[in-house]
């Protein structure tokens, strides 16, 4: 029987049997089975780009490895998520990224680099992703030497969330970059500053200007940082905001990716319109009584 006529498909993941709805990805089925698979270009609130290949797993009878994030479970498939073969592949993907990009602000990738024993020292003078940092406004910066070309920002700006299409992949091969048309600066482009691209970037290539300034000034202090949930005060939609603060000063605003209203995406007001909370001069705390 063709898989499309089934109401349920059953697969084996690391020996455990899992039954899922047709169309369920290997990654989702693995999560049900309590098996974790590393990802980079995948996000719960975006269509899988299927680009980083960190999530590759073995599917018996497949010549090559398959990407867990986007491959749907096929009836009777026998899947292994950890093996010598998979480990070599993940290690190589990590070495490739680590020799190409500045990953110093990607703690999850650093952890994987250690776990899979990726060794970048075996490469002599590898070409790198080089790009001058783009600071074009007070809201966010773009440092593409950290960009792993995961497609997340492009998809968030496009038809996964924002439908603005201000940025696209441009160029080809190793020279591919995220870009506006003819590298037009963002303020002159179609960008509406929703910051959804910043919200999904996994490597801090896109980061809030405030965070960037703190890091540049050597004042970045994770141990002084907290996150506070609140509701956006601008309109009636009522998006949940997460205010990231350091010593009570907001440096970044996000929304939870699994939130039923926002799916992690916001508009310019909720994302960047928080300066009034912290005006340069102190807020009035007593009424001003005219004499």
């Amino acid at each position: 029987m063709s898989d499309s006529l089934l109401t349920e498909v059953t697969v084996s993941i690391n020996g455990a049997t899992v039954s899922v709805a047709p169309g369920t990805t290997i990654l989702e089925a693995a999560a049900i089975a309590g098996v974790e698979i590393p990802t980079l270009c995948w996000a719960s609130n975006l269509t899988p780009a299927n680009a980083c290949r960190l999530c590759v797993v073995e599917m018996e009878e497949s010549r090559t490895l398959v990407p867990a994030c986007s491959r749907a479970c096929e009836q009777g498939a026998v899947i292994h998520t950890e093996s010598e073969r998979i480990a070599v592949n993940r290690k190589m993907v990590l070495e490739f990224l680590d020799t190409t990009n500045d990953l110093t602000q990607s703690p999850e990738l650093q952890e994987l680099i250690t776990r899979y024993e990726a060794d970048s020292s075996r490469y002599t003078e590898p070409s790198k992703m080089q790009d001058d940092i783009k600071i074009e406004d007070d809201l966010f910066v773009r440092a593409y030497d950290r960009c792993v070309l995961c497609y997340k920002c492009v998809d968030a700006c496009g038809d996964d969330a924002q439908f603005t299409f201000a940025i696209s992949m441009a160029g080809r091969g190793f020279d591919t970059r995220v870009s506006t048309e003819f590298e037009t600066p963002l303020p002159e482009s179609a960008c509406v500053y929703c910051g959804n691209c910043v919200g999904v970037c996994p490597t801090n290539a896109l980061q809030f200007k405030k965070e960037f300034d703190l890091r540049e000034a050597g004042q970045w202090q994770p141990e002084h940082q907290t996150t506070t949930e609140t509701i956006c005060s601008y309109c009636g939609v009522g998006c949940t905001l997460e205010l990231h603060t350091q010593d009570n000063e907001i440096y970044k605003v996000t929304s939870p990716a699994d939130h039923s209203v926002t799916a992690g995406h916001l508009c310019i007001k909720g994302r960047f319109g928080w300066q009034y909370v912290q005006p340069p001069t102190r807020r009035l705390s007593t009424p001003n009584i005219s004499s």
């Binding site: 490739f96 091969g173 190793f174």
Partner: peptide, 21 residues
């Protein structure tokens, strides 16, 4: 291969460059 890789996936986008190097 380095010049003709579309650049979409990491193994080929970077692997073709490292192989050439």
């Amino acid at each position: 291969f380095r010049n003709e890789s579309c650049g979409q996936c990491v193994p080929c986008r970077i692997g073709t460059v490292r192989q050439h190097e």
